[in-house]
Design a protein around this nucleic acid. Structure first.
Length: 811
RNA sequence: GGGCGGAUAGCUCAGUUGGUUAGAGCGCAUCUCUUACACAGAUGAGGUCGCAGGUUCGAGCCCUGUUCCGCCCACCA
């Protein structure tokens, strides 16, 4: 006999056990694997490369969303019988990881400088070994059916070779160059960062008005600035060429306050006559626009900041001051000198670091850049011509917008954790050696006095290669040949530029192919009132805690069903709870079915005898099949999930299961077909739901399978009893032959009658145990079957408007 | 300044080829511990689908305008 199943679904009992079973059975590895015998290269696989999580990260809802969606797609395609590969991996996450380890060192009273590069890297690798597995462990808990035998790390040997190949080949094409340019400097991290890593926040500040004295005169030009400390680096004052107020001063020299340097007054169209005083101080080394003007007018570039944003020796008396202290002190001194006009409240967009939030300083610095415009062109074409679909579609416009205005990408970082820039400088001839293999001498003069560039590459440089580097590129591996290009890239829209765009450019550049055919973008997850989750607001939902309380399936179903592509979703515990209840509903429907199997009669002779209810639910299921398949094919997973949920709860459980009790209670052999219907419908629902809620469905399917095989071997679901639901057959049209539509209309009528009778019972206060009889207009008497809980009508073809009611005790 | 998205029941949201009476979950009201499930069942209240026009036999859905909210890109000192 089947062991008695518990009354509520115990996810703790099943989740770990089932995951281990799947793993042990090798279901996560592709069915058609180039590494295994019997491999057939003509079968097209479905492939996803996971967005690599930060190696030191802890699972958050973004990961949960990624994993839920990708696992859903992978399981769907696996069930459809396609060879599927989901490549897992983690990212070294340069800045994020280095920061964590540096913080730890600070707690220990030391620093990376004190340790030195080699020792420091050793520390990070140790850290990685210690904590690097946590995130993948947590991803597994979500049920991720990744092929863990193919797990990659962005700093592992193969991927480092890929990065080296990419860098050198781009350098050889002349697209990677080194030079002084305006960059964003992060004083806290002491590294350059890319434009994308800068965020702007609107803040209350001041606009400072002061006098730029003209040399050898009492004349002056009034100028306004938001950053007075940059005065120390001014090398010109600009006015509009047609501005009558200042025309006469163009060509004269102005005097830098306090420092006394003389700088030219120049004319440039860029200056807006209506803003501020209509005159602009020019600091080419510390402002992007001034940089442009500086280039145009051949101005001197004076960098006044040290790496930590204190003032350097160019700042004269202010040397050593912090930038903000300097602002204050300089302004005071200028006030003393009578140069100050006034201050005005002003709202400005302050550039802040995406990581850490400190104020970024624009600065001219010698860095490595990638001239990306030529790579952007084919990447734009690929989307325009439909080689890549983006879902939802409107993100195409966002993509075009950014790609059409793309700027050179600063790829060097003054960090130690990451891919070291593969460039060696010669101490003798000064030449650069840029090669795939570490050199021992200068390419140009043969000198052995060469030194590698100390910087590392932006983390995203290696991420861009991810879809093919993880498959073995640049080597022509069998994995690369078979699995590339991948199928779908699923990720958050917030990294469309950081990552997706760069993968498309890199894919086309290095492999000549698009790296994936579809981009599916999901939105941000906010709290239940639409607030962004943050530690300060104390509204962060931890997916691990959610899984502890409600189970993995409940979390997954909530994320999948509650979101639509590209739209942010608001998550509340109420929703998760409701879906936990759904898992429990499934569980109990299974309990009912398994518990009733003992009452099943043997298969009757002759033609099957289906009741209206049987025909109705099968027709509805067939319709659900059409809907679900259509929705899956068009990436509307949430809607598909909702459809299955509704069907299962409001049609199968609320109506068919209740009716089945009566059909079984009749004691006729006809009940055989009731059981067959119950099993087939229930089984099909489990298959449809498996990509959403893999654990509860797999558990139920296992219980049902063993119960059926014990007590009713003749029962077999549409796809047969396969080894496991995870690889079971996905229901298709041919499985539903004979499940025609048509019974719905009759059944709807029955539903209406039943509702009417329920109302009548309530209205006339018909006591339990008393029967309500209906007379049909045609004079046909309806056979009303009553259980203590519900009343059901088992005949069709009735007019609901015409029936009489009487009440009498049941004999 | 340029671009994108949203506005549907008290709350959070579905609603993709325009088609009868606009849906769900939670919440609310009344009843039921009934032999799968109180993590449940039954019944019910609640919406002029932001606003104004237009196309159409027919609009939550298409077009135009408009208001409010959110986001992205650019960064006028």
């Amino acid at each position: 006999m089947t062991k008695q199943l518990p009354k509520t679904y115990d996810f703790n009992e099943t989740e770990g056990r089932l995951y281990q079973q799947w793993w042990d059975a090798g279901y996560f590895e592709p069915a058609n694997d180039p590494k295994k015998p019997g491999f057939d290269p003509t079968i097209k696989p479905f492939v996803i490369s996971i967005p690599p999580a930060n190696v030191t990260g802890r699972l958050h809802l973004g990961h949960a969303m990624v994993v839920s969606l990708e696992d859903l797609m992978i399981r769907y395609h696996r069930m459809k019988g396609e060879p599927t590969l989901w490549v897992p991996g983690v990212d070294h996450a340069g800045i994020a990881t280095q920061l964590q380890v540096e913080n730890k060192l600070r707690d220990e009273g030391t620093s990376r400088e004190e340790l030195g590069r080699e020792k420091f890297l050793e520390r990070i690798w140790n850290w990685k070994e210690e904590y690097g597995g946590i995130i993948t462990q947590q991803i597994r808990r979500l049920g991720a059916s990744c092929d863990w035998t193919r797990e990659r790390f962005t700093l592992d040997e193969g991927l480092s070779i890929a990065v080296r190949e990419a860098f050198v080949s781009l350098y050889e094409k002349g697209w990677i160059y080194r030079g002084p340019r305006m960059i964003n400097w992060s004083p806290g991290l002491q590294t350059a960062i890319s434009d994308l890593e800068v965020e702007y926040s609107e803040e209350q500040s001041k606009l400072y008005y002061f006098k730029y004295m003209i040399a050898d005169s009492d004349d002056f030009i009034p100028v306004a600035t938001t950053r007075p400390e940059t005065i120390l680096g001014d090398t010109a004052v600009a006015v509009h060429p047609d501005d009558d107020r200042y025309k006469k001063l163009v060509g004269k020299m102005a005097v830098v306050p306090i420092l006394g340097r003389e700088i030219p007054v120049i004319a440039d169209d860029y200056v807006d006559r209506a803003f501020g005083t209509g005159a602009l101080k020019i600091t080419p080394a510390h402002d992007p626009n001034d940089y442009e003007i500086g280039m145009r007018h051949n101005l001197e570039f004076i960098n006044v900041l040290n790496k930590d944003a204190t003032i350097n020796e160019k700042g004269g008396p202010y040397e050593g001051f912090d930038r903000f202290e300097c602002r204050k002190k300089l302004w005071e001194d200028m006030s003393q000198a009578g140069l100050v006009v006034r201050e005005e409240a002003y709202t400005l967009n302050v550039p802040r670091s995406q990581r850490g939030g400190e104020v970024i300083e624009p600065m001219v610095s010698t860095q490595w850049f990638l001239k990306i415009k030529d790579m952007a062109e084919p990447a734009l074409q690929a989307v325009r011509e439909g080689q890549i679909e983006i879902i939802p579609e409107h993100f195409k416009k966002v993509y075009y917008n950014w790609m059409e205005n793309i700027q050179d990408w600063c790829i060097s970082r003054q960090l130690w954790w990451g891919h070291r820039i593969p460039v060696w400088y010669c101490k003798d001839c000064g030449g650069m050696t840029v090669v795939r293999q570490d050199p021992d001498r200068c390419q140009h003069c043969g000198s052995t006095k060469i030194e590698q560039d100390p910087d590392v590459l932006d983390t995203w440089f290696s991420s861009g290669l991810w879809p093919f580097s993880t498959l073995g590129w640049p080597e022509e591996t069998s994995d690369l040949k078979y699995f590339y290009p991948t199928s779908t890239m699923e990720t958050g829209y917030d990294i469309l530029f950081f990552w997706v765009a760069r993968m498309i450019m890199d894919g086309l550049e290095f492999t000549g192919e698009v790296p994936f055919h579809t981009v599916y973008l999901h939105g941000l997850i906010r709290d239940e009132h639409g607030q962004k989750m943050s530690k300060t607001k104390n509204n962060v939902i931890d997916p691990l805690e959610v899984m502890d309380e409600f189970g993995t399936d409940a979390l997954r179903f909530t994320l999948l069903v509650g979101s639509s592509p590209g739209n942010d979703m608001n998550l509340s515990m109420k929703k998760v709870e409701a879906n936990r209840n759904f898992a429990n509903k499934l569980w109990n429907a299974g309990r009912y079915l398994i518990g009733s199997l003992g009452a099943m009669p043997s298969e009757p002779e002759g033609e099957p005898d289906w009741t209206l209810a049987d025909r109705w639910i099968k027709a509805r299921l067939n319709y659900l099949r059409e809907t679900v398949n259509r929705l899956f094919e068009s990436y509307q997973f949430g809607e598909a999930g909702r459809q299955i949920y509704d069907f299962f709860w409001t049609e199968f459980a609320d109506w068919y299961i209740e009716i089945s009790k009566n059909q079984i209670a009749e004691g006729s052999d006809r009940a055989y077909y009731t059981f067959q219907t119950l099993v087939e419908v229930f089984d099909t629902c489990l298959r449809f739901l498996h990509p959403f809620t893999p654990f509860v469905t797999e558990a139920l399917w296992g219980h049902l399978k063993s119960a059926c095989q014990k007590t009713s071997p003749s029962l077999s679901p549409t796809g047969g009893w396969e080894d496991a639901l995870i690889i079971a057959h996905w229901p298709e049209k041919k499985d539903f032959e004979g499940w025609e539509r048509g019974a719905e209309e009759d059944f709807n009528l029955i539903q209406e009658i039943v509702r009417a009778i329920r109302n009548i019972r309530a209205e006339y206060k018909v006591q339990p145990g008393h029967r309500v009889a209906c007379m049909i207009s045609a004079g046909e008497k309806m056979d009303i079957i009553q259980s203590q809980r519900q009343i059901f009508v088992s005949l069709a073809g009735v007019d609901p408007d015409a029936f009489a009611v009487s009440s009498a005790p049941i004999e």
